[in-house]
Nucleic acid binder design. Structure first.
Lengths: 338, 338
DNA sequence: TTTAGCACTTTGGACGTTCGAGTGCTAATT
DNA sequence: AATTAGCACTCGAACGTCCAAAGTGCTAAA
């Protein structure tokens, strides 16, 4: 559909615009890049590219700017993902290989590292536990009316919460209740946990049905809570487009919309998903580009948000490196083998 | 030092400026407020107030704007803290009286409510546990090499963390270690916990010294971690001063400086602390005003950050109401009596 | 097919003018 | 002695004009 020269021109425009945030003109293009043709020829090509929808013009006498479609083509087929600088590799490696005990911590370190390297804003959620299998449930009586509920998954994610008891319970009773829960829950997929697993419990414990139900409800609640971490929100102000009040304001609204962020971080597969500007499903994101991916081994999901004029190649190279390093580290030493 | 008329004028200027964010002129003042003198008189007074340092002038032909000192005098002696609107009272009450199990949750709800009512940005930390007394320490073996450490304070704050064990331990050993920790730690002020409490443990457990030390280190670590919550960061963009790029950028930098926020939230006493503009100790805050206070009953600390042109009276009335409601609720029903 | 040349468009900065709001000062008034 | 009317003055915001810079599209020549 696009001949080679058009591809080359489109690629160059996108890259120049990403680097300089100024609309790109024909003269600038021939002067700075080795295209082997005159500005006039470039102009003809650019006019066609614009007609085909790959470029936009802010106004008649300005240069061209990539359209969403232009970015899309660039990302899908023109972009070259180069490798990272040595110091970036060292930094990323060291961020990931910190001594970490709880799996949900890992993405947080990755998130911070990515925001530092890319200058964009990064958010992350921990492991998606609803897809996980329960390895153990522990009830711990903290004092006579506080009960700690701990759920451990096969992947060693740990979730815990505290509830207040209406009536005091002794250790023996707690242990009995715990045993019931173990029998009913261990080995189950968390997403399948429902109150009616309690249907067939013996008579001896039916007196504690109330407490059992409330514990089960808490378990269903905590596995759904998934804190998001946020890094580099001030990075955005390094990019010139955020001097525009409206864009800055919209960005703040995105930051505050935690629920929305959780929603976009529900990444299904192992791909790297790129949503450019108005490709975004949620209108709040339409001024931005969003790149999301799952960390391997179900460590969590990460989202990177930046202007549509985002350095896609850079971000992708960072992501690919991270996926690689996590794969080799955590798969190799069996850290997550349960 | 200031005669009554000057006080009245200063107060009126501050309040008008807070309400309208426009420099206040003499004509505007007499037209909108019942001062009983002519603009000329006001001008003379304003000139003197400026000379005394209570007012600033953006430029020769602009009205006056309060200086830091002007706000200070206003806050200290001129301001009238009015009572809240009915709907605000209902909303606050309902936010605080939600069913809440873990004490550290309470401030988070309060924080969100305050940011909604005031249109400023609010951050909060949970109870300051270092000043608390340990009620219990529990070790729970999650699986053969994961150990959950739980610390409960007298005030019923719960902190927990997971560590990975180097060598596998059985339940009996864990129980022995737990017993040692109980003996050594229960009843202690958290701030006094040190590794050398382990000095005089019996021989039988000295084989487990390594694990004891690492547990103790974890305990000292977790009691120091204090997550901050943040609400209404996008509220700031409702205030006209934040259309200035520099102010917006500085504000983002404040948001990202979590360590700094923790620092300013170390509130010592039961007062409400107000730091206006360059009164702030940390330069990052010098463009803003900061109001901090401790929630009663050691529930946590809350900080409200806004422009120097902040509605101090409104914020203070909210804070006072909150302190009152927490006092009456949690003191009365003995929720925190442990 | 490519390019040189040129007329045309638009933005943005520099500059000047005007207008409104506000000031400080002086002299008159209370 | 305190207040106020009056007035000259100052400054910024808004507006228009002008011009340069950058870029375009089109035409005609190479």
């Amino acid at each position: 559909m696009l001949n080679d020269r058009k591809k080359k021109i489109l690629q160059t425009i996108v890259e120049d615009y990403i680097a300089n945030s100024q609309p790109v003109g024909s003269k600038r293009l021939v002067e700075n890049y080795d295209l082997g043709v005159s500005p006039a020829t470039i102009r003809n090509e650019m006019a066609e590219l614009e007609e085909m929808g790959y470029l936009d013009k802010p106004h008649t006498s300005a240069g061209r700017v990539p359209s969403t479609l232009g970015y899309r083509v660039y990302v899908d087929s023109l972009m070259k993902v180069d490798s990272l600088k040595d110091e970036e590799i060292v930094y990323l490696k060291q961020s990931i290989e910190k001594e970490i005990v709880e799996v949900s911590e890992i993405v947080k370190h990755v998130s911070k590292a990515v925001s530092n390297i890319t200058d964009y804003t990064v958010f992350a959620t921990g492991p998606n536990v609803t897809d996980a299998v329960i390895q153990d449930v522990k009830l711990v009586l903290l004092n006579k009316n506080m009960l700690l509920i701990v759920v451990v998954t096969k992947e060693e994610a740990v979730k815990e919460t505290v509830i207040h008891l209406e009536k005091d319970l002794d250790e023996d009773t707690i242990e009995k209740i715990n045993e019931i829960l173990r029998i009913k829950l261990v080995g189950e997929y968390i997403k399948n946990v429902q109150v009616n697993v309690l249907k067939h419990i013996g008579n001896e414990l039916s007196a504690y049905m109330d407490i059992l139900i409330s514990i089960l409800n808490e378990i269903m609640k905590i596995i759904k809570t998934n804190d998001i971490s946020l890094d580099g929100s001030n990075n955005m102000f390094k990019h010139p487009e955020f001097q525009k009040y409206n864009l800055a304001k919209n960005f703040m609204d995105v930051l505050e919309a935690k629920q929305l962020i959780k929603e976009v971080l529900k990444v299904e597969d192992d791909d790297i998903n790129i949503y450019i500007g108005d490709e975004n499903q949620y209108s709040e994101f339409k001024d931005f580009s969003l790149i999301t991916f799952n960390c391997p081994e179900n460590l969590g999901a990460i989202g990177i948000i930046g202007p549509t004029r985002m350095d896609y190649a850079k971000v992708l190279s960072v992501i690919k490196y991270i996926k690689g390093i996590i794969n080799s580290k955590y798969r190799k030493d069996g850290y997550l083998d349960g």
